[in-house]
Structure formats: C-alpha cells, structure tokens
Computed example of a mutant assay.
Amino acid sequence: MYKMATTGVSTCPFATSKALSREHIDTSPAVISDNVDDILKEYDVLREACPVAYTNQYGGYWLMTRYDDVKAAALDSETFISSVRAVIPSDPRGLRRPPLNFDAPNHTPYRTALDRTLKPARIKRLAEPLQLHAEALLLPLMQRKEGNICTEFAAQFAAWVETEWLNLTPDTAPRLASTASAWVNAWRRMDGEKTTQFSTQLYDIARALLADRRENPRDPEEDPASSLLLERNSSGEPLEEIHLVGCIRQSLVVGMVAPPLMLGGICNYLSQDQELQQRLRDDLSLIPAAIEEFVRLFSPYRGFARTVSKETVIHGQTIKPGVPITLTYSAANRDPAVFDNPHEFVLDRPNIAMHMGFGRGRHRCVGQPLAKL
C-alpha cells in the first residue's frame, strides 16, 4: 500500500504498472482538480493501485475509492464517526450542526423529526405545487429558447422545494436561492468572513421559522420545525435551541447545493444523447430508472468524510482517530467490480439499487424522497 515514506515512492501491493509516490497523491486530480474527466480517470488509477491513499492536502486525509470499502464504512457508524469531521474541506469556522455532524444517540432525534415529514403521503402532496413551480421557472427559458439550467432553473427550483417542504413564506424562495449560492461560493473560496456573512442570513431564516412554530405549531408530519420541537434527547429533555436552529439551517443548505449540479449533469448528458432524450419523452415510465442511473453517474457530492473511533486497518493502512477518511461515493459508483461498463449510461441497469449516490447507513441523504420527486 501507499506509505507516507520520505523516499517519495510507495510500495503499493495493488500497483500493477507503477508505484504511486506521495507527490503523485498530493497533486492527483482526485485531490486538487475540478475537471470531472480527469478526476474520474484518477479514481480508476487509485481504485486499482492504491484504494486507500493519504494526501497532505486540506490538512491531511485518507481517500477511499473502492465500492466495498466505502459501503462498509458508511454502514459502520460506530467505527466511522461523523462528529469530528464530516466534510473535506470543512467549514472554515469549525461549526458542528445536526444531524450531519452528530453521532447516535445524539443524531437520532433530529433524523427522526426530518424523516417524519418526508413520508410517501407528504411527498405525494408536494408533487402538484412543485410541478407548478417547475413549469413557471422553465417557461422563460423555453420562450427565449436558451438559458442556464443550473442558475436560472435548478437553483431557483431547489429554493422552492425547500420553501414548500419547510412551509416558508413565498418571499423566502428567491432570498434563499441568492443567499445559498453566495454561501456556497464563499465556502469554495474558504473565505471565512463571507461564509459567516451569508451563513448568518440563513441562520436568521431558521431562527424566524423556529420562533414562529413555537407560537403557531403545525402538524408535525407536515412541518419539519414543528416536528423537531416535539423531539427529546436521550435524557428525555427538549433539544437545545442552538441545535434546533442549526438543524433547520443545515436543511436549508443541503437542499440547495446538490440540485443545480445534478440537474446540470443530467441536461448536459441528454443534450448529447438525442436518442435517449427522445426515448424518455416517448415513454415517461422510463424516467425513474433513468434518474437512478443519472444519480449513479453524476453524484453531486464526491463524498463525505468520517474519522475513526479507534485505530483501524484498511488494506494494510493504519487509520488513526482524528484523521479524516473520505467515503468517495462518486468513485464507488463507478467501480467496475460492481457496475459493468461503469462510465456508461445503462438504462434499467440490473443492480442500479446498489448505487451510493444518496449514501448509506444512518447518514444517508435525508432528502432522498424529495430528490427523486
């Protein structure tokens, strides 16, 4: 396996044509690039030659690329914990919010509250208003016969999805779209000052929502804030205000980041595959299967991070507590050991349910039902 040796060359037993040096890992497209093609090619190299690789980038972390390893780690929430580091790079301010940054049992009441509001009956009721929002947002692009599907449609539509799910006032949607976009860009630049500025605005929305639900509670199966207020911690006490606000604020953000990336990837692919585009137009029943395959191919998050609760050995590498290890879902989803022709779109792929585009285990995507809708 790859070793952090000062000689610069590893002795990966998995390597076939070459060993991978420390410098190679640190400058690998899988670590530093935003070019999708380059990243995916490098995942293929690492998966074969060095499936658990260490890089000094972003303070140092391990990169896991094989499907079986990623899945096993995602399902083992006692060993692979989220309360130390859950994202690489992490929030420049070091803040921790539930449920993403909490482990069980602290994680459980927040997850229970959100899941309660995403049952099939609620999703079905949300379908009609969201359809109307989609049509209204797409109409200007169709009239002009051009437009940016990511910024003009997907980001705006995601804000409406959040607004309908959280029962926010209609004027919140455009404000949420612009604020979330600015926050994401500040995060990417690791600009702590701007990240805080825009994050504060998201916190303001969360605090106002929570204060209103204390005064005007709603059906907990229809309203996330009301559902959260019902929950108790493992000691039977009400959840802390700071974490309630943090959970709502986390919910505001996570639903705003992935959709523009996902929808952009789908539309870009369909623009190049006219035959598939026409098949989906002619037979709408094919769309659910197509969506699953698109999520496998274009997972909007490369992955999430964990740290280990105890010293753990994977493929001969010793992972120590406190050092992040990434569960690279986008690499796992293209593992040829699991998915035949992994870089190709295959409609009705027999094992498509195995994809990890929504994660696995306790921290699987809360909004998965909304995302599929």
Rank of each mutant, 00 (worst) to 15 (best):
V84E: 15
E293K: 00
V323W: 03
L239Y: 07
E48T: 10
L210Q: 10
T326P: 03
H243V: 02
F14H: 10
E241K: 02
V253L: 15
V184F: 13
S33L: 12
P238K: 09
H107A: 08
K41G: 02
L126I: 07
E237R: 12
L276S: 01
A177K: 13
F102I: 00
S10Q: 07
P140M: 04
D212E: 15
P324R: 04
G264S: 03
G147D: 09
A30Q: 01
A173V: 09
T163G: 09
T117K: 03
A72H: 01
A173Y: 06
G255R: 01
Q317G: 03
V257T: 13
F157K: 07
P238N: 05
E128M: 12
R66H: 01
K119F: 08
S77V: 04
V36N: 10
T151R: 08
F339M: 07
L230N: 05
Y2E: 13
V70S: 01
I287G: 00
R207P: 00
P324C: 05
L263C: 04
K194N: 15
A5S: 14
P89S: 11
M4D: 12
E23R: 13
C365M: 07
N35V: 14
P89I: 01
V254H: 01
H343D: 08
D204C: 05
Y61E: 00
S271K: 08
D69F: 05
R279L: 10
Q201H: 11
T169V: 12
Q278S: 09
K18E: 14
A332E: 00
F345D: 00
R111Y: 02
P174I: 00
V308S: 03
V257Y: 11
L261Q: 11
E23M: 10
D38L: 09
I248C: 15
L261C: 00
F294V: 09
R349S: 07
A305P: 06
A5P: 05
H107I: 04
L286C: 09
P336R: 05
A74L: 15
G255P: 06
E146Y: 12
F14C: 03
E344K: 15
K310I: 01
V184T: 11
D223Q: 06
S227M: 05
K194W: 02
G303A: 06
A104V: 11
A113I: 08
D348N: 15
W62E: 03
M262V: 02
D44M: 01
S234I: 10
N106Q: 14
D191F: 06
E193T: 13
P174E: 04
H363W: 08
C365G: 03
L286R: 13
G303C: 07
Y110R: 12
V31E: 02
G255H: 03
A331L: 05
F345Y: 08
K310M: 06
V31S: 03
A86Y: 00
L270P: 14
V245I: 14
N233E: 06
E292G: 03
Q274N: 10
K310R: 15
V323I: 15
P129N: 14
L280Q: 09
R116M: 13
D283H: 14
I88Y: 00
A53F: 05
A208R: 11
R85I: 12
R93E: 13
K3A: 14
R360D: 14
G94D: 03
D91H: 12
A15R: 04
